[in-house]
Write a protein that binds this DNA or RNA. Structure first.
Lengths: 211, 211
DNA sequence: AATTATTTACCGAATGTTCGGTTATATGTG
DNA sequence: CACATATAACCGAACATTCGGTAAATAATT
């Protein structure tokens, strides 16, 4: 007979019945990386106001209350954490990469474009930064948004300088890349075609290579 | 003594007491245009999920229940109506204007830029179209978004043709104007400076005048 | 035993929506 | 004209649902 204690909680009950007998695996803490990826996917597709805690929890496989164990300050903390994650991504995959003078400029550019294309899944995904630029979200997350964009611009500015541009011209061009990527993502979304985004990546390439 | 019947409803009571005695004005329907402008201002700054009916009602001066009299299908109908309003704006102030061969191309361009600048209040305001490009909103409003953008592109394509460009080149340039405006609005918002948007308007001008 | 991780069950507040009713306007009818 | 009727505009209050968030209990790990 199965001890009462074990039956009481069906989670353990199920585990013991179907898993534990054959392979006594222990349930492991859900990976922080996976957790963040799940949360990010919800926020970037629904925005801050559109993301409910139930959805956020479901995307991680945890229950709502378990999310509060990881993020005691709730939705705001979850969103901020996701934003910091994006900030780090930009710093790593754009800023640092494009500022690395040990790599040839055109190789840096190629890699950055590949990273960007991967980040937005070829144009299918909405940018998290854009998803949080509603007026009501700015007071909460504005700092992070600005930071990420500044780092993006810094990276492309350094790339431009490596291509022989003056700092001022390089900065202008860098801002253009950000505007073009953000704008093309919107147009791609609304027009339900990946073309604008893909064409824009090519445009950015040629902005540096043939200029 | 004031009849009981009149006191019961404070609206009428107030009217009779403070207005009716001196000027028997009749309460008039709130202007449709004003109504829409109020609703649009909320939706464009908060998005669909972020706009509450309380806010929407407050922006019009009506009560929540009164909004349901005008828009029996609630929030969705309100949003759709606002979107149709924007669609018409684009058709009038971009498509028709830029397609009018009775006006010199550079004058058309100048007017369109002025209209765009006015629409977004110099870059302060968020584009309604962008505010509704969240994944969850697309199934509801996607058609209207696409329509408005198609009309925008059509207008600028015709302008390009008037400037002597081939239809294909003209269309590419037209798409660029849309991408640039949308992108620069986002960057302007996030960086809290109107510069990107203002510079972009100049860029668009020079795209046609010096090309 | 003590701590961490997770869940079930729940709460108050806010949400979108509906209802019942009042007033003002418009439309008929004699 | 007068008088009844219909309808449009509006509002206060209540509706059901969903929201973000919490408390208490159990399970897993150290």
């Amino acid at each position: 007979m199965i001890p009462k204690k074990l039956i009481k909680n069906n989670r353990t009950f199920g585990k013991i019945l179907f898993i534990r007998i054959f392979a006594p695996m222990r349930p492991q803490k859900i990976n922080d990386q996976d957790l963040l990826e799940g949360l990010m996917s919800v926020i970037q597709s629904k925005g801050y106001d559109g993301s409910s805690l139930n959805e956020l929890a479901a995307s991680t496989g945890l229950q709502k209350a378990s999310l509060y164990h990881r993020f005691p300050n709730g939705k705001k903390e979850i969103t901020t954490t996701v934003l910091v994650y994006v900030e780090q991504w930009v710093e790593e995959n754009i800023t640092k990469l494009l500022s690395d003078n040990n790599i040839k400029p055109n190789v840096r550019l190629e890699k950055a474009i590949t990273n960007i294309n991967h980040l937005y899944d070829g144009g299918k995904k909405i940018c998290v930064l854009r998803a949080l630029t509603m007026d009501s979200n700015l007071e909460l997350f504005g700092g992070h948004l600005k930071n990420a964009m500044i780092n993006w611009i810094e990276g492309f500015t350094n790339l431009g300088i490596s291509f022989g541009l003056s700092p001022n011209v390089a900065k202008g061009k860098a801002e253009q890349t950000l505007i073009l990527v953000q704008g093309s993502l919107i147009v791609s979304k609304a027009m339900s075609t990946l073309n604008p985004f893909q064409e824009t990546l090519k445009t950015i390439k040629s902005m540096y290579l043939s200029g």
